[in-house]
Amino acid sequence: MATVKMLRPYYIKVFDRHVLVILEYQYFAMVMDNHVYQFIPTESREIRINRKTQKIENVGARFAFQKGNDIIYMNMSELMAIPDFLVQLREIVKPYYIEEGSQENDQNSVIIDELERMNVKRLIDKALDNRDKKTFEQLLKLL
């Protein structure tokens, strides 16, 4: 069984839609069959994660790990099956995720509040036109 000994990004690039975690030798190591294998950037060297869905996009990427002359290749799908890998990767990328609808919810709340105020003002005007003092006073409390 494989486990992650160390997973640190060499650097992180943030784009509008995704985050790239760039890996480099000495920053990523796996323990397989009680031996430590170091990541070597011969094939893939980045993990691309969608900022909104928080899913890994480059599932077909292939990573190489070396111990002496022995090289083991692992696909991203194999790495994703290792719980340690997902937990550590999630902690690395967590600050860069886009929270679902957080900004949109704020904008929607502002719009709804403004529409509600406009509606109350219209009802106040209607109460004034009808000379309905009781309704007028109740509506004034809502503003």
Rank of each mutant, 00 (worst) to 15 (best):
M1L: 14
V4F: 10
V4C: 03
L7E: 06
Y11H: 11
I12K: 00
K13D: 03
V14S: 02
D16E: 09
H18G: 00
V19E: 02
V19D: 02
L20D: 05
L20P: 00
V21N: 05
I22M: 14
I22G: 02
Y25H: 15
F28R: 00
A29D: 08
V31R: 13
V31S: 10
M32E: 13
D33A: 11
D33E: 14
N34T: 10
H35E: 14
Y37W: 07
T42G: 11
R45D: 07
R45W: 12
I47H: 07
N50P: 09
N50I: 01
R51W: 03
K52S: 13
T53M: 08
Q54N: 12
E57V: 06
E57H: 02
V59T: 10
G60N: 12
G60Q: 08
A61C: 06
A61M: 03
F63E: 03
F63N: 01
A64H: 08
Q66Y: 07
Y73T: 01
Y73D: 04
M74I: 00
M74L: 14
M74V: 08
N75C: 10
N75K: 15
M76Q: 11
M76W: 01
M76Y: 01
M80C: 12
A81K: 15
I82L: 14
D84G: 08
F85Y: 13
F85V: 06
L86F: 14
V87C: 08
Q88H: 09
L89Y: 05
R90G: 04
R90I: 06
R90A: 03
E91T: 01
I92D: 06
Y96E: 05
Y97H: 10
E99Y: 04
E100N: 11
N105H: 10
N105R: 15
D106I: 13
D106P: 01
Q107K: 12
S109Q: 13
V110T: 09
I112V: 11
D113E: 09
M118I: 05
N119A: 14
K121E: 14
R122S: 08
D125V: 08
L128P: 10
L128Q: 15
N130H: 06
R131G: 08
K133Q: 14
F136H: 12
F136S: 09
L139Q: 09
K141Q: 10
L142V: 01
L143H: 08
